[in-house]
Design a protein around this nucleic acid. Structure first.
Length: 224
DNA sequence: AACCAGGAGACAT
DNA sequence: ATGTCTCATGGT
């Protein structure tokens, strides 16, 4: 079985096991973008608290985020951790977002141009950029995160040390181009995350005999 | 009480 | 290109 076939097979199994996930958890495109930055190496529960603060102070817009003092913004972001770093990153992103002309202007850009633009922002790396492209702009990129590496390494389908871009290509190439690609990529990434969180408590993990904890007791190699 | 969470950048080698 | 540090709160 080829790698692409394996990737398609796992998607079917995850979808059957968990059903549609209806991602991203966020009401507007801009909220999704903010969430993508705040969730960097951070539990989603803590991101929700930070976003709740922004809503509470009517600051969930690029203009409002740029209008307040950075220290005050950082204070609202406290629950999501790395608050000084993330305050700077959010400001960088908002500055870029507005100078590029906002949601419609960005949505009209060719996909590679949009992606390069996002990556040019200090604080937005490949995963955050792809979260934004897929879930806020609803355009076809596959998001690679630590869970994706872990799950597919333990399924022995992919090497966890693969470069981000080549792993992204592996997933994107497994699905023919077409209008439903966005939905498949959306659902697949969500399923990987949900499964990775769930499988430690699951009776029938997909990978035989091994859970997905970062340091699985039945494994010798520590990382992933 | 360690370990972990939907990363990214700076910097040295 | 490839490692190592740092950033920080909250749950288990």
């Amino acid at each position: 079985m080829s790698t692409a076939q394996g990737i398609r097979a796992i998607f079917r199994r995850l979808h059957q096991a968990y059903g549609p996930q209806d991602w991203w958890p966020g009401d507007t495109p801009f909220e999704i973008m903010v969430g993508a930055v705040l969730t960097q190496n951070t539990a989603w529960r803590n991101v929700e608290r930070a976003i709740a603060n922004l809503i509470k102070y009517h600051a969930l817009s690029p203009e409002a985020i740029l209008a307040v003092r950075p220290e005050r913004l950082a204070n609202w972001l406290k629950p999501s951790g790395y608050f000084n770093v993330k305050a700077g990153r959010l400001r960088n992103f908002c500055r870029w977002y507005l100078t590029q002309g906002g949601l419609e202007a960005l949505g009209a850009l060719p996909l590679p141009v949009l992606r390069e633009g996002l990556l040019s922002v200090n604080g937005i790396g490949p995963e955050t950029a792809d979260d934004i492209i897929l879930y806020a702009f609803e355009r076809p990129v596959f998001v690679i995160d630590a869970y994706t590496r872990r799950v597919f390494a333990r399924l022995v389908l992919l090497d966890a040390a693969m470069a981000y871009e080549s792993m992204r290509a592996a997933f994107e190439d497994a699905f023919a181009s077409g209008p439903q690609r966005v939905q498949v990529f959306n659902e697949y990434h969500a399923l990987i995350v949900v499964h990775a969180k769930n499988v430690c408590r699951s009776r029938r993990p997909l990978c035989q005999g091994c859970c997905l904890r970062t340091r699985c007791p039945s494994r010798q190699d520590g990382a992933l």
